[in-house]
Design a protein around this nucleic acid. Structure first.
Lengths: 247, 247
DNA sequence: CGGGGGTTTGAGTCCGTTCAAAATACGTGG
DNA sequence: CCACGTATTTTGAACGGACTCAAACCCCCG
């Protein structure tokens, strides 16, 4: 592969207006004055990321904040021996990279677009100015930080307490709100944002084990998989998987 | 056991002066003005906790913040099915319960004194007043929050990537700074703040497995255990355990 | 049509668990 | 301070879930 690769690692810049942003209501930025929003609008950079493209890399200097405007982003962590795992997913409206920003440190994780995504970038300086004028904003970042800690702790407990099959079922349940839809017959179907490898990485398991668990769940009529889509005929069956796994 | 148990669950109140607090320098509160410190001093409550006594309980309303003045506190989490695990330890100088405080929610974990501990309590109201006058203080809480998230993420990755033996070795390494001492002959010895059960819970393993791993490490001459004390003749051997566990 | 990565399936192994019992440490009351 | 009862820790044997290694399959893309 030459230096002029066809599939570039560099996302393409696009034009976008904060005023027109659909996520304004539910994102961390909501509640900003029109003036602040204008300031934000002037210096922000919106880019299009294709599947697999990195947003930031573990160890990178933090240059500012990202907000997911469309798509899905995977947050990964690698240890000193090269083991990598998928820590969590970031969805539309989520703030990305606030950790390093708030702590004033380098990124302790990597972020990578899973599917095609549109992501806004805000310069460190601009966010700091905004924080001074808008202390509420800081509290909102803290809330996100808090939420991430809470869900990471829950993840740790799940990994310790539940077998992989139950963790897989749980993952489907957490994904159903964002990636699920109910068809005319009332059956729930998901379009997973993850490959099998990424599912394995997220659940702290091997891809082979995930394939086997998927097979088991299908045999037991709990979920029907086809590529990245999962069809759930009876939600209660899935809930039982998590509930009655052992103790 | 009657209602008037000898081993009370209620810690005993004691008198203590912030001005005389040895942790003032390194704790989150450092940098406060004498005036603020006086305010803090007037309404804070210092209590003595005996081993096993709860500081706060998962699901409790958050009434304020705790600071560990002496001793060690275990932060535990229980899931809906009753599985419990030890998430982390809090040591001298650490702030406790700031999660629920910052997020304005109920406690998502339980905290319990592991050994006899002296812990200060600060009313919600007082801390809020202090935060208003001292924005720097808030940043310090955020740093602690950030640090906790980072170490929880690392814990998750370790649990996924390393075998129990390596995790046990790693735990000893993390504990050596706070609970270790070097004798006249230069050998490092730790006095662990944890029971075997708690070690197991912290490492997401069974007590039996921990006992076996301890036996193995002793057979291989890496660590020598005696009750809660661990003697490490050669630190490099312990480091190798973490480094060369698999890939 | 021919790679090439991702996924699935199979067989065998191992690590960690479970269950049970013995040994030890510990707190408590005499 | 010792003796007792209880809880914790250790040891043993057997089981099982998840892993490893390997090959086949599939699907996407060139």
């Amino acid at each position: 592969m030459s230096l002029t690769t066809r599939r570039s690692r560099i996302p393409t810049r696009v034009k976008a207006e904060c005023f027109a942003c659909q996520n304004r209501e539910r994102s961390a930025w909501c509640g900003l004055s029109t003036l602040d929003l204008d300031l934000l609008n002037r210096q922000k950079q919106t880019s299009l990321y294709r599947a697999g493209q990195p947003v930031y890399q573990q160890g990178d200097e933090c240059r500012g904040l990202f907000v997911v405007e469309a798509g899905t982003v995977a947050v990964r962590k690698t240890d000193s021996q090269g083991h990598t795992m998928l820590l969590r997913l970031c969805h539309v409206g989520d703030v990305l990279g606030y950790r390093a920003f708030l702590a004033g440190q380098r990124h302790a994780t990597s972020a990578e677009a899973l599917a095609e995504s549109r992501i806004c970038f805000f310069e460190q300086r601009a966010v700091q100015d905004m924080l001074k004028q808008n202390p509420e904003l800081g509290l909102r970042f803290v809330r996100q930080l808090d939420h991430d800690l809470e869900s990471t702790e829950q993840g740790l407990l799940r990994t310790a307490a539940l077998p992989i099959r139950a963790r897989l079922a749980h993952m489907l349940l957490t994904l159903k709100d964002r990636y699920g839809s109910v068809d005319e017959e009332g059956t729930l179907s998901l379009l997973l944002p993850l490959s099998r490898q990424d599912i394995a990485s997220l659940l702290a398991a091997r891809p082979e084990t995930i394939a086997r668990c998927i097979h088991e769940l299908e045999s037991d009529g709990v979920v029907r998989f086809a590529g990245r889509s999962a069809i759930i005929p009876d939600l209660d069956l899935l809930l039982d998987e998590v509930e009655f796994s052992d103790g």
